[in-house]
Amino acid sequence: MSWLVLILSGICESVWAIALDSSEGFSKIVPTVVFTVGLVASMGGLAYAMKHIPLGTSYAIWVGIGASITAAYGMISGEEPLSPLRILLICGLIACVAGLKIVG
C-alpha cells in the first residue's frame, strides 16, 4: 500500500508543479486551487509512505516520478524542447526509479 501511495503522491507532485506554472504567480484561481490540493496530497502521501519506506528511497522515487512526468508534460505541450537525448535521459531517470523500487 505504501508503494502505491508513494507513486500517487509522485504524480500529485507533477500536478502541483504544472499548476504552479499555470497559476501565473497565483493570479489565476483555478490553477492556484489545483496547486494547493496537489501539494497537500503530494506531501501527505510522501509523509505516509515514509513511515514504511526508507527516507532516501521514498524521496528519490517521489522526485523522480514528479520530475519525469513534469518534463514529459513540458515537451508534449511544447514549452520545452523535444529531443532524443532528453527522452533518453528521462527514460534513464525512470529506470533508476524502478531500480530503487526493485532493491527497496
Rank of each mutant, 00 (worst) to 15 (best):
104 G>W: 03
22 S>F: 06
90 I>R: 10
37 V>M: 08
82 L>T: 15
32 T>V: 04
37 V>D: 04
58 S>R: 07
88 L>E: 07
80 E>I: 06
63 V>T: 15
103 V>R: 14
50 M>S: 10
83 S>V: 11
89 L>S: 09
98 A>V: 13
18 I>Y: 12
45 G>K: 10
3 W>G: 00
36 T>Y: 01
67 A>S: 10
57 T>D: 15
32 T>L: 02
22 S>I: 02
21 D>C: 11
74 G>W: 02
98 A>P: 00
60 A>K: 07
38 G>M: 00
27 S>W: 11
31 P>V: 13
6 L>I: 05
2 S>P: 11
23 S>V: 10
41 A>G: 07
88 L>S: 15
58 S>C: 01
17 A>V: 15
4 L>P: 06
4 L>T: 14
17 A>I: 03
59 Y>T: 06
103 V>T: 15
53 I>W: 01
62 W>K: 02
15 V>P: 01
93 L>Y: 00
98 A>R: 03
45 G>E: 04
50 M>P: 01
51 K>P: 03
62 W>P: 01
82 L>M: 14
67 A>G: 14
73 Y>S: 13
19 A>R: 09
10 G>T: 02
84 P>N: 15
91 C>D: 13
36 T>H: 03
58 S>A: 15
100 L>H: 04
28 K>S: 13
79 E>S: 15
61 I>G: 07
71 A>W: 03
93 L>S: 08
99 G>D: 10
59 Y>G: 05
1 M>L: 14
89 L>Y: 11
14 S>P: 10
61 I>Y: 01
49 A>F: 08
66 G>Q: 09
57 T>M: 07
14 S>I: 00
14 S>Y: 10
24 E>R: 06
32 T>F: 05
35 F>D: 02
64 G>Y: 02
86 R>T: 11
61 I>T: 07
56 G>S: 06
37 V>N: 03
43 M>Y: 13
99 G>Y: 14
70 T>A: 13
58 S>E: 03
62 W>Y: 14
94 I>G: 04
68 S>K: 00
73 Y>F: 14
11 I>A: 03
15 V>K: 03
27 S>D: 10
86 R>Q: 15
73 Y>Q: 13
11 I>C: 07
31 P>D: 08
104 G>H: 07
29 I>G: 05
95 A>P: 02
37 V>G: 01
84 P>I: 07
42 S>Y: 07
101 K>L: 01
